[in-house]
């Protein structure tokens, strides 16, 4: 699974959690917070992305990324480590 695949999954989960984002052109440089998602929505997105990708890491490790692009890179590195 490459960066683009993960980005597509992240975007689809954002829309699933908050459907109003279907009409928003979300960019990799955007942060979840800056585009207006509150902390509960961000928590849901993080959890659903982990479940979708089946990565088993402490959730708090996913707090570091400052934007969607960094989140995708981190997830990719976790998947690589897990040999997926």
């Amino acid at each position: 699974m490459n960066n683009d695949d993960i980005l597509t999954i992240v975007k689809s989960i954002i829309v699933k959690v908050s459907p109003q984002y279907a009409a928003v052109d979300i960019q990799p440089s955007d942060s979840l917070k800056d585009i207006g998602l509150n902390s509960i929505e961000r928590m849901e997105i993080t959890m659903l992305v982990m479940e979708e990708l089946d990565v088993d890491v402490p959730r708090i490790e996913l707090l570091g990324p400052k934007n969607i692009s960094e989140l995708v890179s981190l997830l990719e590195s976790k998947l690589e480590k897990a040999g997926v």
């Binding site: 959890m47 402490p58 959730r59």
Partner: peptide, 11 residues
């Protein structure tokens, strides 16, 4: 830190 607290709760 709301994000940290929510995820710590989950972990």
């Amino acid at each position: 830190d709301a994000d940290l607290s929510l995820l710590t709760y989950m972990d």
